[in-house]
């Protein structure tokens, strides 16, 4: 029971809700420069959707979608993407972190230059980092006081 996750009802409901949570996170991310939200909140929501999968389906099923190595790679990619966006200003011959891309029309979805790209980078970084933390804590479980499970798994 511990390896295969929770009961059938929880699994059925999870199949429906995970996609909705994921979509809500992406919505919060993409509208981060127009409405409340942004990369931080969206990233935490995405991490929560993956955690939802892990809690409902058990570790083995969930880690087929995104395991810890994948999370580490995604987090490094997010950090490097953020630095690369910051370096765009240097490549254009101006300052570091300057908003060099065209601003677009205000109040449009695709506007505001580098801000939406930075939001996406932070989103990847925060989501993958927090999921990696959770995976580390989930694989590692506290040994209860019986001698059969002393190796920490």
């Amino acid at each position: 029971m511990k390896e295969s996750g929770m009961s059938l009802i929880v699994k059925r409901i999870t199949r429906i809700t995970v996609s909705l949570i994921f979509m809500f996170g992406v919505y919060i991310l993409l509208h981060g420069h127009l409405t409340p939200g942004g990369g931080f909140a969206g990233g935490v929501i995405i991490a929560l959707s993956f955690i939802h999968l892990v809690l409902a389906f058990g570790k083995e099923t969930a880690f087929k979608r995104l395991d810890q190595v994948g999370a580490s790679i995604a987090e490094s990619f997010g950090g490097l993407m953020f630095l690369g966006i910051a370096l765009l200003g240097v490549f254009a011959g101006k300052e570091f972190f300057l908003n060099v891309l065209p601003k677009g029309t205000p109040f449009d979805l695709f506007s505001s230059g580098i801000i939406i790209l930075c939001n996406i980078a932070i989103f990847i970084k925060v989501g993958a980092g927090l999921f990696a933390i959770f995976v580390a804590l989930a694989i590692m479980r506290i040994p209860v006081d019986d001698p059969g499970r002393e190796d920490g798994r």
Binding site: G38, F40, V126, L130
Partner: peptide, 9 residues
């Protein structure tokens, strides 16, 4: 906003 996420870490 940055401080909250750092607090989680």
């Amino acid at each position: 906003l940055t401080s909250i996420v750092i607090g989680l870490g």
